[in-house]
């Protein structure tokens, strides 16, 4: 079924109906020559980049855990400058091509929220969230916060710890507590420096986890390297390379 949909999508390629081969090569030459005659000032690019537009950015934390679980929490900040990220979406997944799924409960997402205030509890009781969870080949869906804990209102540090703990609990020891890569993901917020990014990630990891020296190197993105990106959303992904690669 998936393949049929992809075949249909390929056939719907809008470029098929365009006669792009008919574009005069001279038009490309003119463009190339014009560009190469332009100023190569990176300051200009940087100024535009920092102009206060809503650039998307973010951090993704990928922990090479030792287990079958894959967990992600997508965190969004409520304050532009302070990093007060909140979870707005949580997913737990296993191997994508996992075997047939059945429904069942997901107990860990309904654990009491360690940092939830009364106000948060009151607020989250007014929300429902649904998500598909795959743990151990079983798909779990549709959980409510139930007055216990919503991922929507835990702090980033807590969310990171929970996501990592879930992976570890699922896998069982021994597991690797080294964060091997940090990714950029879609989001919004402010640009941060590399040192701040490192501190941010290390703060999320807590003392039990180690950040690989090269972890941030994979975070480069267009026009804003990781340490320049605006941070609003943080994605935490815990996975096992053995099961996902």
């Amino acid at each position: 079924m998936n393949q049929d949909a992809m075949d249909a999508l390929r056939a719907a390629d809008p470029a098929r109906s365009a006669r792009l081969d008919a574009v005069d090569p001279g038009a490309f030459d003119a463009l190339r020559e014009g560009i190469m005659m332009s100023e190569r000032s990176t300051k200009q690019v940087r100024r535009r980049m920092l102009r206060g537009t809503m650039l998307v950015g973010g951090l993704g934390l990928v922990l090479a855990g030792g287990g079958a679980a894959y967990a992600s929490g997508v965190l969004g900040s409520v304050a532009g400058d302070a990093f007060s990220a909140r979870v707005i979406e949580t997913l737990v997944d296993q191997e994508p091509e996992a075997s047939p799924s059945v429904s069942g409960p997901v107990d860990w997402v309904q654990r009491p929220c360690p940092t939830g205030t009364d106000e948060d509890i009151d607020r989250m009781e007014s929300y429902w969230r649904q998500a598909d969870f795959k743990i151990g080949g079983t798909t779990h869906g549709a959980h409510s916060v139930d007055g216990t804990c919503s991922w929507s209102f835990v702090e980033a540090e807590t969310a990171a710890a929970i996501a990592m703990r879930v992976a570890e609990e699922d896998a069982g020891p021994p597991y690797d507590r080294t964060l091997t890569s940090v990714e950029a993901s879609e989001g919004g917020g402010r640009c941060i420096g590399r040192d701040e990014a490192l501190a941010l990630v290390e703060g999320l990891l807590g003392p039990d986890y180690e950040l690989s020296p090269t972890a941030l190197e994979t975070g480069d993105r267009f026009e804003c390297t990781l340490w320049e990106m605006r941070v609003e959303d943080v994605q935490i992904v815990v996975y096992s390379p053995a099961t996902l690669d």
Partner: peptide
């Protein structure tokens, strides 16, 4: 971003698919 956020951001109650 593709992130589900309208419920949370706008403080409206209801059911939302994630």
């Amino acid at each position: 971003t593709g992130h589900v956020m309208s419920e949370w951001a706008s403080a409206r109650s209801g059911v939302e698919e994630a």
